[in-house]
Amino acid sequence: MTTPLAIENLSMRFGAVTVLPDVSFEVAPGECFGLVGESGSGKSTILLCVSMLLSGWEGRIAIGGRAVRDMSLMERCRSLQMVFQDPYGSLHPRQSVRAALSEPVRIHRLGDVDARLEQVMTDVGLPVSFLDRYPHQLSGGQRQRVAIARALILEPSILLLDEPTSALDVSVQAEILNLLQRLRAEKGFTCLMVSHDLAVVDYMCDRFAVMQHGEITEILPRSAILPNAATHPYARQLIDASIAYENAM
């Protein structure tokens, strides 16, 4: 089986500022790979480069052995999809759930729209009657479920998650994390997730990269968090701070 996602020597500059000097990593099939680091360290920029929402980068990004640059827009959209941080900002306020979900099906001429819509709503745990609601009639957690449904309706092999739960309350976060874990087991897609919360990374991811100033300081397995097996000073500091924050002092 080919590597679902490979990033080689990715570099990205915004004018004079180099955001990503040189990033390389690979994600294994079915894996959930985490990106952690302080704000401004370039985590989300990697997702934007992979999804071609930013195109001025250099290097090579390949999905299943195919370079994303060589893919047509249609092919790219079927290979990868993204879920954003803020469910209040990522859904069109004047589009009903039905409109938001049926548009990709129509564009890609997949057929039996209604059956697909019903299926995907059931998958994300929303009643089918919610198809005729508008985003303002949904809670934050329900909106994030719709955003996940919209990402999954084209059955992508890669799902990019940009802080999918940080705008939500813990109770709702638990629901969304459970949902993502269940869908990943059922559909077998590969995830690349940005998060600043190591507890969430520990729950979701198999491996994660610690980033600072656009560089990957270290790639660690999930099991390295609790014993703090990191060797790079920044990675150690981040893990220490997260553990200290979580435990009573």
Binding site: V170, S171, Q173, A174, L198, A199, I225, I243
Partner: peptide, 10 residues
């Protein structure tokens, strides 16, 4: 609320 919180090493 307490139970819904994922924990490191949990």
């Amino acid at each position: 609320l307490l139970a819904a919180q994922p924990r490191i090493g949990g």
